[in-house]
Design a protein around this nucleic acid. Structure first.
Lengths: 119, 119
DNA sequence: CCGTATCCCACAGGATACTG
DNA sequence: CAGTATCCTGTGGGATACGG
């Protein structure tokens, strides 16, 4: 991401800029369960492409939300984990998640015309 | 909006789908101060076009976040206000806003390469 | 004053193939 | 395994003009 119009106005827009990617919150959600490897995340987010996964991960890393640890060994191993900032973001996100969960049915109905085949 | 990949996973994604528009949170922020008229909102969100303002307002209305009240009179008058659901969303958003405000400087610095001319 | 109708484009993100 | 490199598309959203 990275294309708003000016300086942030109310903090909320800054936060939304961080979590605004299509898979960001799902990523945050997955990483909250514990450190994850690349392929593992790919499996946990069915439908995401490698390019996009790597990309969103790097954006979150650039924002200091996730930490990327490379293990110099073969076969290659890389682990992603939430930083302290990431953890605090997740906590700040909790009420929103609760709100969403509470009104999910309503939201799927109104604004929710996705494609037919559910996953 | 309205284009994810399947059913919602964790509530968080449902919520993000609602506030994911470019101006949505600013709109929410503005409406939290009290009911607003169309032109008033346009003035409070410098840079937004009428099309997009109307559009995002519609989406929020479809999601039951804002209420649109038309006064049958001339000159025309329409007021937008938060619904109960909208208010609860705003409240669920509070911690996130606080988080953003707290780390705004950091975020502007890292992920924040916008265009040169600030507003 | 409060919108809708068009046209247009940048860019996030999908598919696929290839590399260290 | 963990990514790049390319190519391509959908669509959110900007600009502008017109209508009730």
């Amino acid at each position: 991401m990275g294309g708003r119009k000016g300086p942030y106005e109310c903090g909320l827009d800054a936060a939304v800029d961080v979590i605004g990617g299509k898979w960001k919150v799902l990523l945050l959600w997955a990483l909250a369960q514990g450190p994850r490897r690349f392929g593992q995340l790919r499996r946990e987010l069915p439908g995401i492409s490698e390019k996009v996964l790597a990309q969103q991960l790097r954006e979150l890393e650039a924002d200091g939300i996730v930490h990327r640890e490379v293990f110099a060994q073969v076969p290659p191993k890389v682990e992603y984990a939430l930083t302290g900032l990431g953890t605090s973001l997740n906590e700040a996100l909790t009420p929103l998640g609760a709100w969403g969960r509470q009104h999910m049915a309503h939201l799927e109905a109104t604004h929710g015309q996705r494609h037919p085949d559910a996953v």
